[in-house]
Simulated assay, not measured.
Amino acid sequence: MKTEKKSVSNKKLIPLWVIERALEGDIQAINKILKHYEGYIAKLSVRKMYDEYGCVHYCVDETLRRRLETKLIKTIIGFKIVR
Rank of each mutant, 00 (worst) to 15 (best):
M1W: 05
K2Y: 08
K2P: 07
K2N: 08
K2T: 07
T3Y: 13
T3S: 14
K5S: 12
K6C: 09
K6G: 02
S7D: 10
S7M: 08
S7F: 05
V8Q: 07
V8P: 00
S9A: 06
S9V: 05
K12F: 02
K12Q: 08
L13K: 05
I14R: 06
I14A: 00
P15T: 10
P15A: 07
L16F: 01
L16G: 03
V18E: 02
E20V: 11
E20L: 09
L23T: 11
L23A: 04
E24M: 14
E24D: 14
E24A: 15
E24G: 13
G25H: 03
G25A: 11
G25Q: 12
I27G: 03
Q28M: 06
Q28F: 12
A29C: 03
A29G: 06
I30A: 10
I30G: 05
I30M: 11
N31I: 13
N31F: 08
I33Q: 14
I33G: 14
L34I: 13
L34A: 11
L34G: 12
L34S: 13
K35Y: 13
H36I: 03
Y37A: 00
Y37D: 01
Y37E: 10
G39V: 01
G39Q: 07
A42N: 12
A42V: 01
K48C: 10
K48E: 15
Y50H: 12
Y50S: 13
D51N: 14
D51R: 12
D51E: 04
E52V: 13
Y53V: 01
Y53H: 04
G54C: 04
G54F: 00
C55I: 08
V56S: 08
V56H: 04
V56F: 00
V56E: 08
H57A: 02
Y58I: 09
D61T: 14
E62C: 02
E62W: 00
E62S: 14
T63F: 04
T63K: 11
L64Y: 15
L64R: 15
R65K: 15
R66N: 10
R67Q: 14
R67L: 11
E69W: 04
T70M: 08
T70D: 10
L72W: 07
L72D: 09
L72V: 06
I73G: 06
K74I: 01
T75F: 04
I76N: 03
I77H: 06
G78P: 00
G78A: 07
G78R: 01
F79R: 01
F79S: 03
F79V: 01
F79L: 09
K80W: 02
V82D: 11
V82F: 10
